[in-house]
Design a protein around this nucleic acid. Structure first.
Lengths: 329, 329
DNA sequence: TTGAAAGCGCTAACAA
DNA sequence: TTGTTAGCGCTTTCAA
């Protein structure tokens, strides 16, 4: 029993190999009856188009590279899923690459993807803009949660949501608030910090800018320690993971949340609901982020000349158990 | 400026295309000096071997499919990373496929991978054995955390670790213990249940078998509810996620952990350290699981005739804050 | 140690 | 609407 190719199918059908090929790739160009016959015998013979051969012939691999800075960051798996689902709809396979938290590795990994994929989706990459652009070369690429001029991107705008949560804190009586900063090479960290700063000025509250801290549980514990040395009664953590660390450290020190301190996260990862108290945070529209990214990549591939589009999707504020009235003095 | 191929490099070097090809794939077959010259000009011209063309010629894609049942399960991302790292060492790219928690989708997805990859790594697949075997067909495949006769596999043995934790509970005075069962189609759930049962018989403790529950936070809350209706002072949850749900529900009902109830998880996911109290659990040797899986796949590909090997790696018990002395009556 | 040439399975002009 | 044919870029005999 031989490998089944378009040739064996063609022979079995009494047509030429091109007809078989067309039956699969350009069904409209083939007589209905013939096409059906081809498809049937192909199915029956267990024919599966050889992706590699197709790729050599067309120059398209049918694969997209998805590069993530750190797959263990709980924000990413749902995003990976979203991208995967959207890509699947476009008949794309996803080549996942994890930079293992190493910003320097990103460029190298992107490089390795060259020639293996039709396009790139980069989820909140940490590499510097020039390194990024050089690694990407002329491969169509889309960024998620980061903007770099000249590259298409889709980001979650957390500014509005954060400011809404801020207003809530204000109403709850908080007058001094801490900003627990995230990694300096994180674009999102910059955006979020700016948003909180902006809100603080408008709201007239005292803002204690602390950090940068590691975007991790331990970083959060560290941040809580610093926060307790200020007069802040509430804190915006860079993300939910850090916020969880803050909660843990506060609990360890018998500082009641939300009784004595309020804590706000960002991203709304699965864990945000699981901790006690549950985290007030900003929900990112993960599915849409993935969908739009794939969509933009489609365009970037089909119309390489088109101007890079920078899209923004709003985050949604969610108030849960970790925010409450400021303690009375 | 044209695409650079072995031909352009060959021309620039004054050698034949086969020599260029060899310089990359069989360097030993080429004169040292010539090879160096070829490699240098290739690098300088920015030559990158075309994976697809190579694949059509050799019949090897240089890719492995990694199928996971649910990428949002926190146990998996570290495993994905481990597999990816090991695969990278073998010059393999990883095509990640997420079944989105849908057992039925697994077989379909595996099927789609046919012809696209050289082999398959299936992380704790849920599909039934026959469906699995049929989907795999004659693609080399390795299972992680599941055993199916005839297929190579590497699993984490949690039995010893669970029994050790059980012994600890015994010493702490627990005499009635609950087993919060996981999904029935999970092989690991079966193994863990058997381990706990076994230990319980040997230790002479009363075992309340409850469930099956959903392997989720909500499933854990549900399980806690059931547990509280028994006399159990300690519980083995199917996994850490479920255990977190148990902790949350107990906290919500003001049942102190570990004061009134002890809780044991399994897997030692990141979250296990983050919850309060931190979870006593079983640490899986994730990196090794990934490494061995890739190793086994290597063999399965190189020696298709070889007998399927079923390897076992021990889990390690970790006692943290969620286990303590049984409450005195 | 090297080169010529056939072929991997498929697509895409072009012609019929 | 179909078939013929020439590639896609690479590997791999086979001869030299």
């Amino acid at each position: 029993m031989q490998r089944v190719t378009i040739y064996s199918v063609a022979q079995a059908c009494g047509v030429s190999s091109s007809t078989v090929s067309r039956a699969f790739t350009r069904p409209d160009l083939v007589n209905d009856e013939v096409r059906q016959r081809v498809l049937d015998t192909a199915a029956q013979m267990g024919y599966r188009p050889n992706r590699s051969a197709r790729a050599t012939a067309t120059g398209r691999t049918g694969m997209v590279g998805l590069v993530v800075p750190d797959i263990t960051n709980p924000f990413l798996p749902p995003l990976v899923r979203a991208v995967q689902r959207a890509a699947g709809l476009a008949e794309w396979s996803v080549l996942l690459v994890d930079a293992e938290g190493n910003a320097a590795a990103e460029a190298r990994l992107i490089n390795q993807l060259q020639g293996q994929v039709d396009g790139l989706i980069l989820a909140s990459p940490r590499a510097r803009p020039d390194a990024l652009r050089e690694a990407i070369r002329d491969l169509p690429a889309v960024l998620i949660n980061r903007e770099v001029s000249g590259l298409p991107s889709v980001v979650c705008d957390t500014a509005q949501a954060l400011s809404k949560i801020g207003d809530q804190l204000l109403q709850l009586g908080h007058r001094e608030v801490a900003l627990l900063g995230g990694p300096v090479d994180s674009w999102a960290a910059g955006q979020r910090a700016a948003a909180v700063r902006n809100w603080a000025v408008g709201a007239g509250v005292v803002l204690d800018e602390l950090g940068p801290f590691d975007a991790s549980f331990e970083g959060g514990r560290d941040a809580a320690d610093h926060m307790l040395r200020t007069g802040a009664t509430a804190a915006f953590a860079f993300d939910d993971v850090m916020a969880c660390g803050v909660l843990a450290e506060l609990a360890a020190r018998d500082v009641a949340v939300p009784g004595q301190r309020s804590v706000v996260g960002c991203d709304d990862v699965l864990m945000a609901r699981m901790v006690t108290p549950s985290l007030s945070t900003v929900t990112a529209p993960t599915d849409q982020l993935g969908g739009v990214a794939v969509d933009l990549l489609h365009r970037a591939i089909d119309t390489p000349s088109a101007r890079a589009e920078a899209r923004t999707l709003p985050g949604r504020p969610v108030l849960r158990g970790s925010t409450g009235p400021a303690p009375s003095r």
